[in-house]
């Protein structure tokens, strides 16, 4: 539970008053589903960190004689066509996919929120210029770009982070800006301006905290979409370099074999789906908890 406080504490909204934090915590604890999800995600992160010590086999270990075998006592989740232990491969895949998901989303979140909030709040020419830049980047066909980049530089983790992060911040910036535009016309902001508060202070204390709901909703949507984007690249053969695995590469292998060896699809897909569900439920919980205007009943 300590972890959740830390996580939420990084949100700018909580910098200002402790009463808000406490209220938010209180509301979050009331939401059972969100708590279960948070617990699951924590467990998953823990497992990912400890993978090298808890994985039953080495990730490259093969057993061609065994081939693809269904779940058994030796291999709880079965083996793939080269006789590699599925559990081990999923564990290592979890590391890769979570890392891609979190790092790329962090990149997107950082740039996107700052950019969108600033543009939306300052308005006028600055807004225009900033959103034009977003438009330019938006109009770049990213699928082609990521393909070309991975083709030129070879696929690497760093490139995946940068490329995916660079794509995802744009939508974030747009959503934040839209939200800010709506908020800034509301009475309390106008009041703050009338009171002579500095712009930066207004952005930090009023605009960002009020826009935080949609940002969190979108963040919880971004992590899964990043994970999906990675799997799309794996489907094109541009994902992670073998013999390493990611959820995306495991699932795309699984699809090929889904009729012969269903466990090759079911387990990685299940891991992915449950994680995405959990991320979404947690996002909901956080959203409800962090919204300062939510009813206190």
């Amino acid at each position: 539970m300590q972890r959740i406080t830390e996580q939420t504490a990084t949100e700018p909204v909580l910098e200002e008053g402790s009463s808000l934090t406490r209220d938010a915590m209180h509301r979050l604890f009331k939401n059972r589903l969100a708590l279960v999800s948070a617990g699951f995600l924590l467990l998953l992160i823990l497992v990912a960190l400890l993978t090298p010590w808890i994985a039953p086999y080495a990730y490259q270990d093969q057993n061609l004689l065994l081939g693809a075998s269904s779940p058994s006592a030796q291999h709880w989740l079965g083996t793939d066509t080269l006789g590699r232990d599925q559990l081990t491969r999923i564990l290592y895949g979890t590391r890769v996919s979570l890392m891609v998901g979190f790092v790329a989303t962090a990149v997107a979140l950082g740039i996107g929120v700052l950019w969108g909030a600033t543009a939306g709040y300052l308005g006028g020419r600055v807004d225009n210029a900033m959103m034009r830049i977003v438009d330019v980047l938006y109009a770049l066909p990213f699928a082609i770009f990521i393909i070309l980049l991975t083709v030129i530089f070879g696929s690497s983790m760093l490139l995946l982070f940068l490329a995916i992060g660079a794509v995802e911040w744009l939508t974030m910036a747009r959503i934040v800006r839209g939200q800010v535009l709506t908020i800034k016309r509301q009475e309390y902001i106008e009041a703050a301006i009338a009171m002579g508060l500095s712009r930066w202070r207004i952005i930090r204390r009023h605009v960002i905290p009020n826009a935080v709901g949609p940002i969190i909703v979108y963040t919880t949507l971004t992590i899964p979409s990043v994970i999906l984007l990675e799997s799309f690249l794996s489907f094109l053969g541009l994902g992670i370099q073998p013999p390493q695995s990611s959820w995306g590469s495991l699932i795309s292998d699984g699809v090929e074999n889904m009729e012969n060896y269903p466990w090759m699809l079911i387990f990685p897909a299940l891991t992915l789906s449950v994680t995405l569900f959990a991320l979404n439920f947690l996002g909901d919980g956080l959203r409800d908890a962090l919204d300062p205007r939510a009813s206190k009943d």
């Binding site: 589903l33 999906l228 799997s231 799309f232 489907f235 995306g248 699809v255 995405l276 569900f277 979404n280």
Partner: peptide, 28 residues
Amino acid sequence: RPNSLQDYVPMSAAMVGICLPSFVLGPI
């Protein structure tokens, strides 16, 4: 009705689409 069954059921149903990549959903 947030945080009730009326919330969870339709949302979970709608979410199937982002929990499965289209190259899995399509073949299935």
